[in-house]
Write a protein that binds this DNA or RNA. Sequence first.
DNA 1: TCAAAAGTGTTATCTCTACACCCATGT
DNA 2: ACATGGGTGTAGAGATAACACTTTTGA
Lengths: 237, 237
Amino acid sequence: MPTYSHPRPSVTVDVVVFGYDGGRDLKLLLIQRGGEPFKGQWALPGGFVDMEEDLEASALRELEEETGVKDLFVEQLYTFGAPGRDPRGRVISVAYFALVNLTDHPAVAASDAARVEWFKLHELPELAFDHAEIIELATSRLRAKVRYQPIGFELLPREFTLAELQALYETVLGVPQFNKRNFRTRIMKTGILQEVGRQENVAHRPAVLYSFNEETYHRLVQQRDSAVLRRALDFEI
Amino acid sequence: MPTYSHPRPSVTVDVVVFGYDGGRDLKLLLIQRGGEPFKGQWALPGGFVDMEEDLEASALRELEEETGVKDLFVEQLYTFGAPGRDPRGRVISVAYFALVNLTDHPAVAASDAARVEWFKLHELPELAFDHAEIIELATSRLRAKVRYQPIGFELLPREFTLAELQALYETVLGVPQFNKRNFRTRIMKTGILQEVGRQENVAHRPAVLYSFNEETYHRLVQQRDSAVLRRALDFEI
DNA sequence: TCAAAAGTGTTATCTCTACACCCATGT
DNA sequence: ACATGGGTGTAGAGATAACACTTTTGA
């Protein structure tokens, strides 16, 4: 097997970053391409993997270089490698995805990218390469993940009310609204929330503020995807 | 961005094939390497991706070339790309995994492989490269999958009894034994099984033979991972 | 008639859903 | 006092777990 003489494809990483700011829409981080191919079109942040660099490190590096977004957890999504997906030749792309609290992660155009913008997930522009397909997969992965892991940790500010947490779930799952009473019962039963104070200066009964109890959170997420979480988070759609 | 001049890693595929033959163990398909590096050691079937070939097609081709195993569904698992995982240089490997009914898929050594063998999952030999890590990930993916998708379709013969289906679940999940009555109720409620006959010449009451109702099966698996299936298959561990 | 494995009835308990209601605050 | 959103009690329906029981076959 003459391994050294094998023709070699190029390898890139692309990153799908979902952002949330409390509204009725999830947002998606895109860059406008500054170079060919697809110059001027919107695309996922990403780029070529360096020879001595881990894949995940590449994803984080390219993301920061192109958008300024950093300090986040990425998770591998899928590897796209159909011949012909890139006009430059054979390019295999390892896609990553991440969730961030939008207000903590301002986007700033840099290097290759002409512009950077957070788009509403339901109002995306036309996309370069097969990036629409990548985003679709990431979206369905997010909706699956929400059912067995608490996503609020990454998407919400450090302190939040139960109403905010519920709004997040309704937004991500795209359902009109579910029962307040039952949502609370389910979430509280997991024990992952801890009371940290109450709202002030609101024209109604002040809501209790919660944050995630990191210890309980990590124990539950670790434990073979914990039946406790599945039971509590598996909202019917 | 001078894309043409980028240094390029090699890209391979590796395939984790789980087999079942009705016993108390899951089996795993391994080859003994015929060439360097790791000559003589056991490894996952796999090899280099051709320039004009889709990743999944590569995985199926390498699997058949090295083991004779074909006609099966593979699912992408994860992409391993740590620098240093292959002594030949930078090699990025896209791992796939598959489930087969062992009796329908005899293994035959061919081409590069010195030998091919089905190993019990709990009695694996020392493995080449980072393949032990790949197998560990595949195993945990299988145990997660079993909870929301019916795996019997791929692992069992076309006709089977409920006792056989239950033994499969106990084997995959590694639990001693769960309640017969309740297992049956859960499975039957999905409507995924159809009666196709009964056992003959057994020294006890003959069991009803079932097969999967393909139509119901595909409808349920498709439908956003169907709550019906999750409810029915999510066995406590 | 017996052993072996298949298959069923039933109940007590737990969980979930839906809906109505009460509570605390600023204006 | 009242509007506003936060927060709770609870009954009826439905799902679940556990156990003991009946059935059908070949030897």
